[in-house]
Design a protein around this nucleic acid. Structure first.
Lengths: 143, 143
DNA sequence: TGCAAATGCATTGTGTGCAATGTAATTGCA
DNA sequence: TGCAATTACATTGCACACAATGCATTTGCA
């Protein structure tokens, strides 16, 4: 009858969340390295493949990343020729990030990545769907 | 009828996992800062509060962290007086990490942390339980 | 209209997180 | 038993991630 121990690792929701996130992202490294991309660059590109052009602020809101992370990330992507960064004419405070042709072309090479990762995560489709639903529910509850 | 786009951010399981993990851990920072702890130090302590003494290797396996992360982490915890590090007599390659009295005492101050975090994560108990179950299922599938 | 507050980004500092590599100790097998 | 392979840590290098701070621009309101 010792009761519930709030400080047991196994009783924390944060821990499996932390481990699952790290381990899943680690799966990406090998595949993304072939494209000379890091995981963070990859998710930034996923946004740009949809939007073509977006402000740093809007990108940060979509990715849940702040400028301390994004500014150096986008500069290195600019150095690799994947994006351009330009101060907005309308608002000099704002920086617009745009995809280059090279950045757009990388999309074709990246198309096979999700399937490769999926084959490394052998859980039933229903579980993945339910996990997805609950994670987004959690994220909205945090905002 | 454009079909399923595998490179949409919304179609990736990794992304909500990544965001949920980051955002939940960020909730811990403010509360842990009061105890002069980082999140990684906190989960290392959770193991030590249960085990009192453990090898670096075993700790790494429990936390899913490698020595590149653990060695500097444990050294800084040693500098703060929370743990001791000692080469094992039986196997000179192995380092044993042990909780000090000060490290043990910190447990009392940490007892209220999980409740504080819980109140910041307003999702139903059943959702949390299901999320927990699916995350561990995912983690075992990755090993 | 002028100025305080807000906004958008950049910078700095601290702390991970891990691959790759190095080193000393231990193990296992020919 | 001797030595190659393995093991357990430590170190290095690179890339985040974010709080705190700074700075220039813009906004809003008295």
């Amino acid at each position: 009858m010792s009761g519930f121990d709030p400080l047991k690792l196994e009783n924390q929701l944060c821990f499996p969340l932390y481990v699952a996130s790290k381990e899943v992202i680690r799966l990406y490294h090998a595949h993304l390295a072939e494209l000379d991309l890091t995981y963070t660059q990859y998710i930034a590109l996923m946004v740009l493949w949809e939007e073509k052009s977006i402000s740093v602020k809007a990108l940060g809101e979509k990715l849940f990343l702040d400028t301390g992370t994004l500014t150096p990330l986008l500069k290195s992507m600019e150095n690799k020729g994947l994006v351009t960064r330009r101060r907005s004419d309308k608002d000099e405070r704002s920086v617009t990030v745009s995809l280059t042709d090279e950045g757009l072309a990388l999309r074709e090479k990246a198309l096979c990545v999700p399937a490769k990762i999926g084959s490394c995560i052998p859980i039933p489709r229903e579980d993945a769907a339910e996990l997805y639903r609950l994670l987004y529910k959690l994220i909205s509850a945090l905002k």
